Amino acid sequence: EPLWIRPDAPSRCTWQLGRPASESPHHHTAPAKSPKILPDILKKIGDTPMVRINKIGKKFGLKCELLAKCEFFNAGGSVKDRISLRMIEDAERDGTLKPGDTIIEPTSGNTGIGLALAAAVRGYRCIIVMPEKMSSEKVDVLRALGAEIVRTPTNARFDSPESHVGVAWRLKNEIPNSHILDQYRNASNPLAHYDTTADEILQQCDGKLDMLVASVGTGGTITGIARKLKEKCPGCRIIGVDPEGSILAEPEELNQTEQTTYEVEGIGYDFIPTVLDRTVVDKWFKSNDEEAFTFARMLIAQEGLLCGGSAGSTVAVAVKAAQELQEGQRCVVILPDSVRNYMTKFLSDRWMLQKGFLKEEDLTEKKPWWWHLRVQELGLSAPLTVLPTITCGHTIEILREKGFDQAPVVDEAGVILGMVTLGNMLSSLLAGKVQPSDQVGKVIYKQFKQIRLTDTLGRLSHILEMDHFALVVHEQIQYHSTGKSSQRQMVFGVVTAIDLLNFVAAQERDQK
């Protein structure tokens, strides 16, 4: 057995438009009618409502009807409940999964919650491996369901041993009777949507819809739904939504950006999952974080739909894509998950301010006199920076000697690579993860907040409520011999709460 199987392995699926269902090699399930009293909570997966979006479509000038398939009504709160249950049931049916076995899954959280929910009911041990950027709410729900959680670096490539995929496979090879159901490759993922989600949409719309818009992560949702719609409703256009920084969209030119990270969760990847059939997507749109969270908040405030950030991405694209539809036509959007997962993220004004998705003037509360002053007023001194090749031991000596707790790590040209902190280095040394002679590049981390000289002290204040420091950066445009230009970030300084307090105190003292 291989040590790991690539999540982007070539698909062996034989589905073709027009091929009889009787030739399918898979076990198919028909939607079942729910009894009045459910035998367990797993029976509350599927049969989610279709809700008309009344205000947002009109606000953006849509002539067509805009409908939302509300997947956050599933038992675990997301569309991923469907595939989690289906993968477990299919693994039980073919004898792969037996009582007492362990389920391991690399996930952005929602599939993990679905699997942990099913594992709690069915009696399996469950280990979820997820990147650090995923919300604390997801972690809390997983723990409450009895799952064990392993976190991995957000910026690790999918084929790196440190990625959530790599760590999951390492655990599988170490733990007896453990299984990775593997949402990236498992046919049960798109089949769950082909058999149930798509049929529900067709039934709820009486077979009449002209466009379907869905955000894409593993691709199982859009693949399964689109294949069924292509068979039953061939005139329906399928629109895929991919965040900026991901590479799922086609044509490839759409993916060209210097951005590699994004805040919206559960969609987009740096590889093409095996289950994603991009041939059934008629057109791709890219979405960005700001519009995703703005539209998610709009869905909550104006439509009462308590959905997550990827739902915002989907609707932001839908109001663009559906401009081509006329009166009497219908566009369906998939709202994948609930706001429950993001209470401390985009639902929080403070978080939105820190990330730059909300401006101070958007909030009406009274601010102190210094709130709208610029960061450049602080008069920061030149920063202490270190090269990635310097040793951890030497870096600790320098920081202690100069009285700093942290320093930016830059390359020879001064471009920011990340940050090192005294606390992080000492804990890594004590844990045996690094040696004093190791290069400081081994303990770089990139989960820090950046701020510009033109940003306000109010925004800085919000950042420092949650973080010990902020890195002050400025952009530099560099022209190359080819005539092309590129933008790079340079370090201007490091600012802490002490710097802000000293500035405010000094100004008030001078005024007296």
Rank of each mutant, 00 (worst) to 15 (best):
268 G>Q: 00
313 S>A: 12
452 R>P: 01
418 G>W: 05
486 S>N: 13
350 R>G: 15
313 S>N: 08
478 Q>S: 15
391 T>Q: 02
286 K>V: 01
294 T>D: 04
396 I>M: 15
438 D>K: 11
301 A>H: 08
290 E>R: 03
314 T>C: 06
460 L>D: 02
473 V>G: 12
380 L>K: 10
309 G>D: 02
318 A>N: 01
344 T>A: 12
332 V>C: 14
278 R>T: 05
426 L>R: 12
394 H>M: 09
355 K>E: 14
451 I>R: 09
290 E>C: 11
371 W>F: 12
347 L>W: 00
361 E>L: 09
456 T>Q: 03
502 N>A: 13
507 Q>M: 15
380 L>E: 08
311 A>P: 05
329 Q>W: 02
344 T>G: 13
405 D>F: 13
312 G>H: 03
398 I>N: 09
272 I>R: 09
492 F>A: 12
272 I>N: 04
295 F>A: 02
485 S>F: 15
336 P>R: 07
308 G>V: 00
489 Q>S: 12
369 W>H: 05
426 L>V: 12
271 F>E: 01
326 Q>R: 13
279 T>A: 12
289 D>V: 00
421 T>I: 14
365 E>P: 11
340 R>V: 01
365 E>R: 15
440 V>W: 03
438 D>W: 09
331 C>K: 00
413 A>I: 11
394 H>I: 12
249 A>S: 03
436 P>W: 11
508 E>R: 13
262 Y>E: 00
267 I>T: 08
474 H>N: 02
358 L>T: 05
339 V>M: 09
360 E>T: 12
460 L>E: 05
485 S>G: 07
437 S>T: 04
463 I>K: 12
302 Q>N: 11
266 G>P: 00
266 G>Q: 01
374 R>D: 02
354 Q>L: 13
409 V>I: 13
342 Y>S: 02
317 V>W: 06
306 L>P: 05
371 W>Q: 08
310 S>Y: 01
322 A>V: 02
397 E>V: 10
487 Q>G: 15
337 D>Q: 04
384 L>H: 07
378 L>C: 05
415 V>I: 13
460 L>Q: 07
271 F>I: 01
403 G>Q: 09
239 I>F: 07
400 R>G: 10
292 A>F: 01
287 S>I: 13
440 V>L: 14
383 P>G: 08
510 D>Q: 03
298 M>G: 09
417 L>M: 14
343 M>T: 06
396 I>W: 07
276 L>V: 08
267 I>A: 03
329 Q>D: 03
431 A>H: 03
317 V>Y: 08
263 E>T: 05
250 E>F: 07
512 K>G: 09
281 V>C: 09
375 V>P: 01
355 K>Q: 12
374 R>F: 12
330 R>V: 13
393 G>W: 11
482 T>W: 07
354 Q>G: 04
347 L>R: 00
366 K>F: 07
333 V>Q: 02
505 A>C: 02
495 V>D: 08
379 G>V: 13
301 A>G: 14
467 D>P: 09
268 G>M: 00
268 G>N: 01
343 M>R: 06
290 E>N: 12
248 L>C: 04
286 K>R: 03
438 D>L: 13
430 L>D: 10
312 G>P: 04
449 K>P: 05
294 T>K: 05
338 S>G: 09
508 E>C: 11
427 S>D: 09
361 E>A: 02
457 L>K: 03
258 E>N: 14
323 Q>H: 13
244 E>M: 03
303 E>F: 05
511 Q>H: 13
370 W>F: 15
281 V>G: 04
471 L>I: 12
500 L>E: 03
289 D>N: 02
418 G>L: 01
241 V>L: 03
397 E>M: 13
272 I>S: 08
352 M>Q: 01
346 F>C: 02
465 E>N: 11
373 L>S: 13
319 V>W: 00
249 A>F: 03
312 G>Y: 01
324 E>H: 12
376 Q>P: 03
436 P>I: 15
471 L>N: 13
375 V>L: 13
403 G>F: 08
270 D>F: 02
325 L>C: 04
387 L>C: 09
462 H>C: 11
374 R>Y: 02
504 V>L: 07
240 G>W: 07
246 S>P: 01
374 R>C: 13
436 P>N: 01
294 T>V: 14
283 K>L: 09
442 K>M: 15
251 P>Q: 05
275 V>C: 08
273 P>Y: 06
434 V>R: 10
249 A>L: 04
512 K>Q: 13
245 G>P: 03
431 A>R: 09
271 F>T: 00
425 M>Y: 09
252 E>G: 11
422 L>F: 14
305 L>E: 01
290 E>D: 14
493 G>L: 15
406 Q>M: 01
438 D>M: 15
472 V>W: 10
380 L>P: 12
397 E>A: 15
249 A>V: 02
470 A>H: 07
345 K>G: 03
382 A>T: 13
377 E>M: 10
243 P>N: 07
422 L>E: 13
509 R>Y: 09
297 R>T: 01
397 E>L: 12
467 D>G: 13
281 V>W: 02
414 G>E: 13
318 A>Y: 00
410 V>Y: 14
267 I>F: 01
375 V>G: 06
393 G>R: 13
352 M>P: 02
289 D>L: 00
397 E>S: 04
428 S>R: 04
479 Y>P: 06
297 R>E: 01
466 M>R: 11
479 Y>S: 14
442 K>G: 09
489 Q>T: 12
481 S>R: 14
266 G>D: 02
476 Q>F: 14
356 G>F: 02
470 A>Q: 08
382 A>P: 14
264 V>S: 01
361 E>S: 14
478 Q>W: 14
445 Y>Q: 08
254 L>N: 12
381 S>E: 13
363 L>F: 11
258 E>Q: 15
466 M>C: 13
431 A>K: 10
297 R>N: 00
507 Q>C: 14
390 I>R: 03
311 A>L: 06
462 H>G: 15
355 K>G: 09
287 S>P: 06
280 V>M: 10
254 L>A: 11
384 L>G: 10
306 L>W: 01
468 H>F: 15
324 E>K: 15
364 T>H: 10
286 K>C: 00
475 E>K: 13
363 L>S: 09
324 E>Y: 12
409 V>A: 11
466 M>A: 10
363 L>C: 13
275 V>K: 01
422 L>Q: 04
464 L>R: 04
400 R>F: 09
441 G>S: 10
289 D>K: 01
280 V>G: 15
444 I>N: 14
487 Q>E: 15
503 F>G: 04
427 S>T: 12
450 Q>F: 14
306 L>A: 07
320 K>P: 03
405 D>A: 14
449 K>H: 02
426 L>N: 09
422 L>D: 09
507 Q>F: 14
313 S>C: 11
258 E>V: 11
405 D>I: 08
481 S>C: 15
239 I>H: 03
288 N>P: 13
499 D>A: 05
303 E>P: 03
322 A>C: 08
488 R>P: 09
468 H>R: 14
383 P>H: 09
486 S>K: 13
344 T>D: 06
373 L>A: 11
442 K>S: 07
393 G>D: 12
474 H>S: 10
483 G>I: 07
474 H>E: 11
305 L>W: 00
262 Y>L: 01
341 N>T: 01
423 G>C: 04
419 M>L: 15
449 K>Q: 12
252 E>Y: 14
268 G>K: 01
290 E>F: 05
280 V>P: 09
474 H>M: 08
403 G>V: 12
